[in-house]
Design a protein around this nucleic acid. Structure first.
Lengths: 105, 105
DNA sequence: TTATCATATGAATGCTTGTTCATATGAGTA
DNA sequence: TACTCATATGAACAAGCATTCATATGATAA
């Protein structure tokens, strides 16, 4: 188990895990990042394609991709000159779907 | 339906809905707010009880409760001198559970 | 009414963070 | 090698935001 025993803590969750949770949701809290994730819903894309798709410049997208990757929400592989990004797992779509459920109620 | 037709937009979602989504997840992106939500998992509480539970001062908690309420994640009712807060619906727990799944993987 | 408890709110402050600009790195090609 | 395309990165700036402090509002009790 990655986290400490949950003793004497809010709702049975330790401070460290709480901060990690907040950091995770922080990734979904910016519209540029959500756009990037959304644009990967229909399959992997290289950086240029993502830029074009969401209409943002390369540097901004690259910075955000770095954050998304460090949060393990996307993964990447190099293919020649380009780098191809894709969703890391299906939690991403599930979390966003839950969010949509809420705001569409 | 609350949102416009999804035409020619990223992954079939309109800009407005995207911003709302980001705003929703922003609510989960702060550890104080997650603590508050967590502390409501086992039932409604008044403000003082929440403060005590998460060890934060009344003003900070009140400010965050206001945000959580405006995002419809919590609801409140007055009972005499106190105001009692509770989770607005079960999306909250589901979303947080998904987040935990991800970071605990 | 006055006093007190519980909660809300406005302003100020300091920290965080997304974007931009310039530049660097990495890979392919001639 | 030199040149170009694709991506990454560092620094700087501006905007956003969580907390604190002081104060206001709302409700009960005396």
């Amino acid at each position: 188990m990655a986290y400490k025993d949950n003793k004497g803590l809010i709702g049975g969750i330790c401070e460290e895990e709480l901060l990690d949770l907040a950091d995770l949701f922080k990734m979904f809290s910016d519209s540029t990042r959500i756009k990037i994730l959304y644009s990967l819903f229909d399959g992997e894309k290289n950086v240029s394609e993502i830029c074009e798709n969401i209409d943002m410049n390369q540097s901004a997208v690259s910075h955000q991709l770095k954050l998304l990757k460090s949060s393990k929400l996307v993964k990447s592989r190099r293919e020649g000159k380009t780098v191809i990004y894709s969703l890391a797992d299906d939690h991403v779509e599930t979390i966003i779907a839950m969010g949509k459920d809420h705001i569409e109620e």
